[in-house]
């Protein structure tokens, strides 16, 4: 199981966190989860994730600051892709996230669970 694709879900809302963990595990991924920014940062510093689904509005450390931290001091073992998954649709924040290295910005409410899995696969395949 060591070569399973590793995904980290960073989501403070428990209902959604559980949902994303379930559908991604069902899709065959190895899924870690973090409920706040600091917890997520600890995991991301270690690195090695193939994909990270990152919320923006988070307790303790928000997604943008988290991206900044990673941008300034990248982990030795890199995380391949970080995709923002948030319900915050502010243009300015989307622009910030992309410039700080996010591969994409998805609005949660636009997607059904199967569409989320589809998009995740697309990002993973899109080198």
């Amino acid at each position: 199981m060591e070569d399973k694709t590793k995904i980290l879900v960073v989501e403070d809302d428990q209902a959604l966190r559980d949902l994303y963990v379930i559908i991604l595990q069902d899709a065959g991924f190895a899924v870690d989860q973090a409920a706040d920014g600091e917890e997520a940062y600890e995991l991301l510093k270690k690195g090695g994730y193939d994909l990270v689904l990152l919320d923006i509005v988070l307790p303790k450390l928000d997604g943008i600051h988290l991206l900044e931290n990673l941008h300034q001091s990248p982990p030795s073992l890199p995380n391949k892709k970080i995709v923002v998954l948030s319900n915050l649709g502010h243009d300015e924040i989307i622009g910030n996230a992309i410039s700080l290295g996010a591969s994409g910005y998805l609005i949660k409410s636009d997607y059904t669970p199967d569409q989320i899995v589809t998009r995740v696969r697309e990002f993973l395949n899109d080198k």
Binding site: S86, I107, S109, T112, P113
Partner: peptide
Amino acid sequence: HELRTPMTAIKS
């Protein structure tokens, strides 16, 4: 943001 989050959960 606050409206969408519970709606996303319901919808999903």
